[in-house]
């Protein structure tokens, strides 16, 4: 019960900070919209296979940018305050949940922007939404944990990229497979195999994060 209370409190705090500054969401929205506009301006008509690749590239880089900030914005003094108030599990869980929400909003907005500027290449909307949801789950778990690691070292964004991209590849490989099926680029077969793999990877990484973060958070 204490855990849930702490998480709700942290989510409220992060949401409030975001509401007041609008920094993360605004910056990312600008990024997504300008990328999609450039794509539209240069391609005009986007083939489904290209649509698939471009969509996930936009989501991937937007997610990295969005999540890198999660631990950097916490100042040293505030960290000390957290140590005395919270359990590490609730801190990391709150960050992950917040980032899932952020990425979900981000991906759905990008999907909307793609539909607006190009067209909706997705034929199976339900499956594609499921793929987006599982992707945001995996992205936010991995990126949040890696941003916690790279926040400990001072050269942040470079290290973040070096650590993140190889670790995220298993999720991306499964994801691309799923979204190809949702775009009718591939015959739908063994969907549940891919779904279970993705869910399994997400669960494994979440478990590792919860076990390891208590060793990481405090210097």
């Amino acid at each position: 019960m204490k855990l849930v209370k702490e998480i709700v409190w942290l989510l409220h705090k992060d949401g409030l900070l975001e509401w007041r500054s609008g920094y993360a969401l605004g910056g990312i929205l600008l990024y997504v919209l300008s990328t999609v506009y450039i794509l539209y301006a240069s391609f005009e008509k986007i083939e489904p296979s290209l649509w698939n690749a471009l969509f996930w590239i936009v989501i991937l880089f937007a997610s990295v940018n969005a999540i890198t900030k999660s631990f950097v914005q916490e100042s040293g003094a505030r960290q000390l305050y957290y140590y005395s108030l919270l359990s590490p599990i609730s801190l990391i869980l709150a960050k992950i949940i917040y980032n899932v929400g952020l990425l979900l909003v981000l991906s759905l907005l990008s999907w909307g922007a793609f539909t607006l500027f190009a067209e909706n290449a997705v034929t199976d909307n339900g499956l594609f939404f499921l793929a987006i949801f599982l992707a945001t789950l995996g992205f936010s778990i991995t990126f949040t944990f890696i941003s916690a690691i790279s926040a400990k070292a001072n050269n942040n964004s470079t290290l973040m990229a070096i650590l993140c991209f190889p670790l995220i590849i298993p999720i991306i490989m499964t994801l691309i497979n799923l979204s190809k099926m949702a775009l009718d680029l591939k015959i739908k077969a063994n969907i549940e195999n891919d779904l279970y793999t993705l869910l399994g990877i997400d669960a494994l990484l979440l478990g590792m994060t919860l076990v390891l973060y208590p060793f990481l958070w405090r210097d």
Binding site: I149, G200, L204, T209, L216
Partner: peptide
Amino acid sequence: RVSAVYNIFAFAALVPLIYVIPRL
């Protein structure tokens, strides 16, 4: 400490990469 944490996390990420994805 940080590299020990990363080592464990990376190994966990390695298992699906090597043993699950290629089978699919």
